Measured scan of single mutants.
Amino acid sequence: KELVLALYDYQEKSPREVTMKKGDILTLLNSTNKDWWKVEVNGRQGAVPAAYVKKL
């Protein structure tokens, strides 16, 4: 499985998103959308802005 690093804090704004903190390591589930990537963090799945994460 592919991992990404959170470059910034992000507070979810809808139920389809997830909150992450700078430095979090997230499991990347889907990166086909260039703006929003689906990730899993702390057992929750949701979208985060692609510009806020970097593939490891």
Rank of each mutant, 00 (worst) to 15 (best):
M20L: 09
V53Y: 01
L56K: 03
K13V: 08
Y52A: 12
W37D: 01
Q11R: 11
A50K: 07
S14G: 12
A51P: 08
K34L: 09
Y8P: 01
L29V: 12
L28C: 07
N33Y: 07
N42M: 09
A47F: 15
V4G: 14
K1M: 13
K13F: 06
L5S: 05
V4F: 06
A47E: 15
L29K: 05
V48S: 00
K38I: 15
N30C: 13
V41H: 15
Y8C: 15
E2F: 12
S14A: 08
D24Y: 04
Y52L: 14
K38H: 15
E17Y: 06
S14H: 11
L26G: 09
L5W: 07
V39E: 01
A47K: 13
R44C: 08
D9C: 06
N33R: 09
V4T: 02
E40Q: 08
T19G: 09
S14E: 08
V48Q: 00
E40W: 07
P49Q: 02
L5C: 12
M20F: 13
K54C: 15
Y52Q: 05
A47R: 14
E12Y: 05
Y10C: 04
L7M: 11
V48W: 03
E40L: 08
L5Q: 11
L26R: 00
G46A: 06
P49M: 04
A51L: 12
T27N: 09
W37F: 08
R44Q: 08
L7T: 05
T19I: 03
K34C: 11
I25V: 11
N42G: 12
D24A: 07
K55W: 08
L28I: 05
P15F: 10
L5F: 10
E40R: 05
V18I: 14
K34D: 13
T19W: 05
E2I: 14
G23T: 01
E17R: 05
K22F: 05
L28D: 00
Q11L: 13
W37N: 00
K38P: 02
W37T: 03
E40F: 06
G23Y: 04
T19N: 06
K54Q: 14
K13P: 05
E12T: 10
L7A: 03
G43E: 06
L3G: 03
E17I: 04
L5R: 09
S31H: 10
G43V: 03
R44H: 08
V48A: 03
L29T: 04
L26M: 14
D9R: 02
A47W: 15
E17D: 06
T27K: 11
N42V: 05
A50G: 04
L28Y: 02
R44N: 06
A51W: 10
V41G: 08
V41R: 13
A50D: 02
R44M: 08
S14C: 10
A51D: 10
W37H: 02
L5H: 04
K21M: 10
A51E: 12
P49A: 02
Q45H: 10
L28P: 00
V39Y: 00
W37R: 01
V18N: 04
A50N: 02
P15S: 12
L5V: 15
I25E: 03
L29C: 08
V48E: 00
D24K: 02
V53Q: 01
K34A: 13
R16A: 14
I25G: 00
Q11I: 14
Q45N: 07
K55N: 07
L56N: 04
Q11G: 07
D9L: 02
R44E: 05
